[in-house]
């Protein structure tokens, strides 16, 4: 009888549902394994190592594994290094705002006003064209642009707007900000365009039909709906700007010292423990910034 077999399920054979579940779990593990291995070997382990090394004893040319807080004390009591943290945070904040100010209107145009999907994609690709050359060329190309005898000064002098070349344009914090904004703005444009493109056009028409002006629609509908895109873009830009050193190195004339530049110079002079301290500090800052960003917008809900 069938009742007999259903009343006494044997322990050894699994039901089809259980088998399916087991299979799904095995597949999930298979898919995750390469990524997890990679992360463990090349991220988690080195991170632990960096924290560990930051407590090693540093002498002029060698580093020993005797634990000490000397490097930390030196870092946290030096105005140069605390100043570098401040500079890093300041440049990060300004670049972040600049990328939003420059990037949002571009994204608004591509994502909302261009309704042809092909053209949208073409315009987004156009934004990435600068990335077809190397990072260094993109940065160094600013020198003939911003220098005292560069293009901008030459044009302004020609037009008679200025009599002497503007010197703040290059080898200053200004040039670092310009360079970074240009390089990272595309990481802001992409996610915002994506979110704007997902807004149903009839939602905007509905708002107009209810009597709202474009300004109101932007403030009440478009901006809130695109905010997750701004947040994702902000995370991209933050992570990259906070760890930056190359733009500052080539455009600031050594006037701007970011945490990244400190790490580079300390590693260059074999001050491993000290570089590790800066690295840990930088990691803490980046983690805090991302945590803050995720706090502001619940991405899980919005995506």
């Amino acid at each position: 009888m069938t009742t007999l077999s259903t009343d006494t399920p044997s322990d050894t054979s699994l039901s089809p549902a259980q088998l399916r579940e087991k299979k799904d779990r095995r597949r999930a593990i298979t898919l995750l394994t390469p990524g997890l291995l990679w992360m463990a070997l090349f991220m988690v382990l080195p991170m632990i190592m960096v924290v560990y090394v930051s407590f090693w004893t540093q002498t002029t040319f060698t580093v020993e594994s005797t634990l000490t807080t000397a490097s930390w004390e030196r870092f946290l009591s030096s105005s140069t290094y605390l100043g570098a943290i401040w500079t890093t945070l300041r440049i990060w904040a300004i670049v972040l705002i600049a990328t939003i100010v420059v990037g949002y209107p571009v994204a608004l145009f591509i994502g909302l006003f261009v309704r042809n999907k092909t053209l949208q994609t073409a315009l987004l690709v156009a934004c990435v064209i600068p990335f077809w050359t190397s990072f260094l060329i993109r940065v160094i190309a600013w020198r003939p642009m911003l220098g005292t005898e560069g293009a901008i000064n030459a044009i302004l002098m020609q037009l008679g707007i200025i009599n002497e070349p503007l010197t703040f344009l290059l080898f200053s914090e200004f040039s670092v900000l310009v360079g970074m904004t240009q390089i990272y703005v595309v990481f802001m444009v992409g996610p915002i365009t994506f979110m704007l493109g997902r807004i149903d056009p009839s939602v905007i028409e509905a708002a107009r039909d209810l009597g709202a002006s474009f300004g109101t629609i932007f403030r009440r509908i478009i901006l809130p709906l695109s905010l997750p895109g701004v947040m994702v873009g902000a995370i991209f830009v933050s992570v990259m700007v906070l760890g930056e050193f190359a733009t500052a190195a080539s455009l600031s004339g050594r006037k701007v010292n970011l945490l990244g530049n400190i790490i580079v110079s300390q590693v260059g002079s074999l001050k491993w423990a000290f570089a590790a301290v800066a690295g840990v500090v930088l990691t803490i800052i980046i983690t805090a910034v991302i945590a803050l960003a995720l706090r502001l917008v619940d991405l899980r809900k919005e995506m």
Partner: peptide, 20 residues
């Protein structure tokens, strides 16, 4: 006339509610 000044109600097929 701009549509937001026409004072005409429109009910969309897909409802077009404000999702947020």
């Amino acid at each position: 006339q701009p549509s937001h000044l026409r004072d005409i109600g429109f009910v969309f097929q897909n409802f077009a509610l404000f999702p947020h």
